[in-house]
């Protein structure tokens, strides 16, 4: 009887350990990355901002960058450009998603106006995010958008579930 219970417990314990996602040793395929290697990689910033680097900027600063690098595709104040409209009702629940996308993907290179692909610094990304928030009436022109503030921006959209 004791043996049966022991066996049963073993089985349950085994099943339990298999149900967690594995931390088993691998086959040794692939190169192990160092922290330095990882620092070089592209990263994406989630809504809780864990990956967000410290920095700051204002819409006034962002407007200069916008005029140099963005206006060609997105038009004055985010309207009437050949590419996406940037002014209207925000479609993002988190301001940080704007920072994330600008950081990862903007600007695209446009050869004939000399825009360099993805050459924005962290602070420039904060400034451009501030500019987009400014032209959409979410912050003021001289508000300093920094790591704390961007986490606490209330985007003007409903945040409750449908009942």
């Amino acid at each position: 009887m004791n043996k049966t219970i022991f066996l049963l417990l073993s089985v349950i314990l085994c099943l339990g350990s298999f149900s967690a996602y594995s931390q088993t040793p691998g086959q040794g395929i692939g190169k192990v990355l160092s922290q330095e290697d990882i620092g070089e990689l592209m990263y994406t910033v989630g809504p809780k901002g864990k990956e967000l680097p410290q920095g700051q900027g204002t819409a006034r600063e962002g407007e200069q960058i916008y005029t140099q690098s963005c206006i060609f595709c997105h038009g004055p104040e985010g309207l009437n450009g050949p590419q996406n409209t940037l002014k209207g009702s925000p479609r993002f629940p988190f301001a940080i998603s704007i920072w994330d996308y600008i950081h990862r993907a903007m600007p695209r290179s446009v050869a004939n106006v000399g825009v360099q692909e993805r050459q924005l610094s962290v602070d420039e990304t904060y400034s451009l995010t501030a500019y987009l928030l400014y032209i959409n009436g979410i912050i003021d022109q001289d508000t300093v958008l920094d790591t704390d503030l961007i986490m606490n921006i209330e985007m003007p959209m409903e945040k409750k579930p449908v009942n």
Partner: peptide, 24 residues
């Protein structure tokens, strides 16, 4: 945690029946 990226924002979250806002 899940990530809400640009693409999620514009077409992968749902809206209220009246069209306002995201369903969170």
């Amino acid at each position: 945690d899940t990530y809400v990226t640009r693409q999620d924002g514009y077409n992968m979250t749902d809206r209220m029946p009246d069209g306002r806002g995201f369903l969170l």
